[in-house]
């Protein structure tokens, strides 16, 4: 009998979770901009995954005989760069780099930020110390912090990922800490404490799931920042190095040929803008959909 009740409860919970996700999705569907954003992201993910199948040319292969071909040339519908490399191939492989850098740095930043936020919010004694460190990291403008880390580690794409991850930590830690503080004194947490549940269990099993909404929103908008920062750092020559088809590095290379081949600088910029726009509007959409304070028409 007891088992039966337990099972029923579990099913009810599962149903609620399903409802929550479905409701969130339904709210997202009402937001046309968010849907456009999701579509752009999906297309990019597909392009990034199936890049070798979808492009006819090697993005690194030089062909000086067909250098700086303009958009619409047969065989190279987005033209070629100053080394005769196909622009479409480079843009598609660039999407791969941007998404990988964005995703990796956001995941690493979240891992650090969530952990610090949980510890800081839950353990009062550690709160002051952790938050002062976070304040210290916040005292640097983001680009500057990333540059400082790159100055320390050297210029490479991996170091850009590390730099963006560290830059993401303080923001995430603050958000998670705020959520923990609002949850940790609720009755069900006190009940867990009173029955002797361990801190680890309370934190990861009962508090963390209640912080997921702000974390998801943070991660989505952070993807936009990470992609933009990666492009900016590569543009400055501090990230991906030639001949990598990273979008920021492509703009930097294209800048020298603006008179003869403006598409070399224009196309990667449009790619960055679309990607960042997509993640920004999806982030906004998620914020609206996950925020219970906002009322939606039924």
């Amino acid at each position: 009998m007891e088992n039966g009740i337990a099972l029923e409860k579990k099913d009810v919970n599962r149903g609620k979770k399903g409802h929550f996700l479905l409701d969130t999705w339904k709210r997202m569907c009402k937001n046309k901009l968010a849907l456009i954003g999701i579509s752009i992201i999906l297309i990019q993910v597909i392009l990034a995954i199936f890049a070798p199948v979808l492009v006819a040319h090697d993005p690194y292969k030089q062909d000086l005989a067909s250098a700086k071909l303009s958009i619409g040339t047969a065989g190279h519908f987005l033209g070629t760069d100053n080394y005769g490399r196909d622009m479409w191939s480079r843009l598609v492989y660039g999407a791969r780099i941007s998404l990988i850098v964005g995703l990796t740095s956001v995941v690493l930043g979240l891992a650090g930020g969530v952990l610090l936020g949980l510890i800081s919010g839950y353990f009062k004694k550690l709160d002051a110390v952790i938050m002062r460190i976070v304040d210290l990291l916040f005292a640097f403008p983001g680009t500057l912090l990333a540059m400082l880390i790159i100055a320390m580690l050297g210029t490479s794409l991996v170091n850009v990922i590390i730099a963006i991850s560290i830059w993401s930590i303080p923001g995430c830690a603050r958000i998670v800490r705020g959520s923990v503080l609002s949850v940790k004194n609720q009755e069900y947490i006190l009940a867990m404490k009173s029955i002797g549940a361990s801190h680890t269990r309370i934190i990861f099993k009962h508090i963390l799931p209640n912080c997921t909404a702000p974390i998801i929103i943070f991660a989505t908008t952070r993807m936009a920042t990470a992609i933009l920062s990666c492009a900016s750092l590569s543009y400055l020559g501090l990230g991906a190095q030639p001949p990598s088809p990273e979008w920021g590095a492509m703009i930097a290379a294209g800048q020298d040929f603006m008179w003869e081949a403006p598409h070399m600088a224009i196309l990667p910029g449009i790619a960055i803008m679309l990607t960042v726009f997509a993640f920004n509007v999806v982030g906004d959409g998620l914020r609206d959909a996950l925020d219970p304070n906002i009322k939606f028409d039924s």
Binding site: S232, G254, Q255, A265, I266, P268, G269, M273, V276
Partner: peptide
């Protein structure tokens, strides 16, 4: 507002140079 926060400023600069200077 949406495009403004999404546009990479180094690219915007490059495009402005292309249009107004070049």
């Amino acid at each position: 507002s949406l495009v403004g926060v999404s546009i990479p400023n180094f690219w915007l600069g490059t495009m402005l140079i292309l249009l107004f200077s070049v």
